[in-house]
Amino acid sequence: MVIDKENNGAGGDGTPIEFRLDGSSGVPTYLQLVQQVEHALRLGYLKPGDQLPKVRDVVAGLAINPNTVLKAYKELETKGLAAGRPGQGTFVTAALGQVALPELAGLRRNLHRWLASAEEAGLDEDGIVALFTSVLRDHFRRDGRDNRGAGAGDGSEGVA
């Protein structure tokens, strides 16, 4: 039996990734696209020089607004991860910087210590998550790195 391969979706020719959307995540659509590209960069699906799916193909595959895709790609350009080439599309320009392994191990140890003290104070797992999420949000908002505020394009750029 031959299974029909879906090759007309949000991927298309010449790109190694295919976008998908999680409707229940509450994460804005453009941000999901950005995160999926970043994820693919971290996991090595995407390398510098690779082409991102064409705006039109993403739009046709996911039935989303082209301005959303343009906004996601603009965000990736702002982050220095991709660049548009006129008449060709958007291409990956940089690998995503990873934190070195020894540093990561140190951060893990710190977090474990903090979790132990939180438990001692009487917080259960859900309580810890609620507190952590709240502090995380506060922290990044103070730094002006609130994702929703950043790079809010006006969507007025034309469609290539």
């Binding site: 705006v55 607004n65 469609v159």
Partner: peptide, 16 residues
Amino acid sequence: RRDFLATVMVAMADDG
């Protein structure tokens, strides 16, 4: 509905 919206979205991308 999805097919319908996809058609509209592609017209936006293609034709502005």
